[in-house]
Nucleic acid binder design. Structure first.
Lengths: 168, 168
DNA sequence: CGTGTTTGATATAGTGGATAACAATTATCG
DNA sequence: CGATAATTGTTATCCACTATATCAAACACG
């Protein structure tokens, strides 16, 4: 038997033999691949990752982009209203807004009706950046998803996720 | 005009008038409801939330549960292997394991082949807890998802998310 | 042997999310 | 009106999760 005759290093007997067998015995996911929550999170991370890549030229995170979108669709709202609809707590929304305002993408204006609250508005630069971001998202990010799932698949997926997000 | 004759408080003119109109003009989500990443994250949060509720009697987080599942399906693996397949960085996996080991759900055993690495094994208590956790997940958590989406819908959703997680 | 690599571990920093508390302002109601 | 309560933005602080650099011990390999 040549095996016992040839002195085999530990590396040989483990890594190389395993590679010969099947690339170091892949760890079995088992029932994990059927756990919806697990796959859901993995998919979410991938999608956010791709979003960041696609919109990198404009230096916008998903959260920042969603704020700009909301301000555009709801001009004149205050911080509490915007933060609440995004599921962001007011204290945590402050620094997020600071960042956007310091980049001159939006402004806080004291309300005349209620001098406690800040009316939020997109600046011209904010509108311009948002418009460019939308184009990147549609042409690169969502386009890639359409390519992977097909338009029908994408719509089906969106509908199911919306149902979970709203009714679960 | 009775409006000008009756002194209306600011609260009247804002909150009540709005309620009369339509419950304080809800903030418009706008294009946000079509952003897959946004809905994906919201759904993921809801699912994790429900997972925690369903498995609360056993005090297991999704991450802890996934580790137990992997150890059960892959007895004898080391920390690096388990952490890698879960997408957890080795440094961060240490405290996670500390927590499980301190609860006597799993053990680290020095490998005889390679005395650097720790072989991970479920304890009897770990197997028992995992078995009970599985029952809760199936009977409560996944059951609720099936109720919401239907078995077909759930499978379709899982397939799409898997595709994104693996191929995106 | 000596050099380089791997494993588990520690320290540390960054980020996101959550609560308590505060000043300023507004609402409520006796 | 005036006292009390509620709301808004803000700060401070804490916890969980993530990411990087570094280390000693053990191992691989020439």
């Amino acid at each position: 038997m040549s095996d016992s005759a040839r002195p085999v290093s530990k590396r040989d007997s483990r890594k190389e033999a395993a590679v010969a067998a099947e690339e170091t015995q892949a760890v079995q996911l088992g029932e994990l691949s059927d756990l919806l929550g697990y796959v859901l999170k993995r998919a979410q991370l991938k999608v956010f990752e791709d979003f960041l890549r696609c919109v990198a030229p404009l230096q916008l995170t998903p959260a920042q982009f969603s704020v700009l979108l909301l301000l555009d669709a709801n001009p004149g709202r205050n911080q509490t209203e915007i933060a609440n609809t995004l599921g962001i707590l007011r204290p945590n929304f402050v620094s997020l807004l600071d960042s956007l305002e310091s980049r001159d993408l939006c402004t806080r204006v004291r309300s005349a009706n209620d001098r406690r609250s800040h009316i939020l508005l997109l600046t011209e630069k904010g509108k311009s950046v948002l418009a460019r971001a939308k184009k990147l998202v549609v042409s690169k990010h969502e386009a890639r998803l359409n390519e992977l799932l097909g338009p029908d698949g994408r719509d089906t997926l969106l509908a199911m996720l919306t149902k979970i997000a709203e009714e679960f």
